[in-house]
Design a binder for these strands. Sequence first.
DNA 1: GTCTATACTAAGATAGAC
DNA 2: GTCTATCTTAGTATAGAC
Lengths: 181, 181
Amino acid sequence: MSRPPRAREIVLDAFEQILSNEGARAATMDAVARQAGVSKGGLLYHFASKEALESAMVDRLLKLVADDLAELESAEEGSVTYFLRTSAAEDDNLDRAMIAVARLAQSGSEPARDAIRTVRLQWEDALRPHTRDALALDLVMLLADGLSFNSTMGGDAQLSSVPHGEALDTLIERVVGLTTW
Amino acid sequence: MSRPPRAREIVLDAFEQILSNEGARAATMDAVARQAGVSKGGLLYHFASKEALESAMVDRLLKLVADDLAELESAEEGSVTYFLRTSAAEDDNLDRAMIAVARLAQSGSEPARDAIRTVRLQWEDALRPHTRDALALDLVMLLADGLSFNSTMGGDAQLSSVPHGEALDTLIERVVGLTTW
DNA sequence: GTCTATACTAAGATAGAC
DNA sequence: GTCTATCTTAGTATAGAC
């Protein structure tokens, strides 16, 4: 509690970064150790196996989502607007963790897939009181899934046709108008 | 042209199936050969490398999308309805190929990622004439991304909260009403 | 608490028999 | 055209020095 072990976080950051930038295939123990600036032995002191590393990544996501759910409830702009806006982001801690865990999930990690499903349900429960009806909630969730999916597919060289900036703001505004009171 | 090589397709089916059901990590040459009922040597006669196998999978997707774009144009129910309905499907050839290539993309294959982006643009271009404006088109595309994303995350043990059946039909109907003439 | 050295395993690929 | 056998490399993990 007093002071979190720092090296663990650095290693986890490295794992997250490689997963995001290069995909699960490239996220080997070796690559993670190199990126984190520690030796393979050093890595394995902190995380005894790859599974342990993945599990820690999932835990990080769950923690960040718990924080986000609190944010969401108190968001000045409204919960749904906040949710959709942040679903499109790529550069905060939560989204990086989300992308990393999504990559693990698609590569075959069951715990990662469970986590993705769990956090989706948590967000859905949190937004239910703020949306008109079940249909409106479905629309909001699917839209967020779409935005999130495009974040994971984007990567560096994106320049895709997915709305961003002002177009995205307008879209969110419209959808919020349709789904909330 | 006269008769397509049958064994190739069987191997490709096996690859697709393992990618969909177990993820990219499990889709090894060995596993594909076993599933296809051929030996490793036999597999490598048809596909000289894993890269060749992945490339063939991408080609299959591009081919199926080309067919789908033709279907979409002539769909009785309307292009947008057709598009959204099929984006939620999981059990036709196109969707299986889409899920397989999405898994490859997330695991780190650049060609797979390019393919996903390409087909998204193709669909977007095809739907543009059928939607009200840029914002409506964005909404339709993101909704389809969300539906597609949930297909890839679902897998066998789904039972998730993603709309299906009648709820999905209603949602699609509403969105089509909002985005088309 | 972090490193080097090394063992073990699995994956991708080749050679050549049939 | 498909198989068996084998090689190489890369990835995970262990042991033990520092």
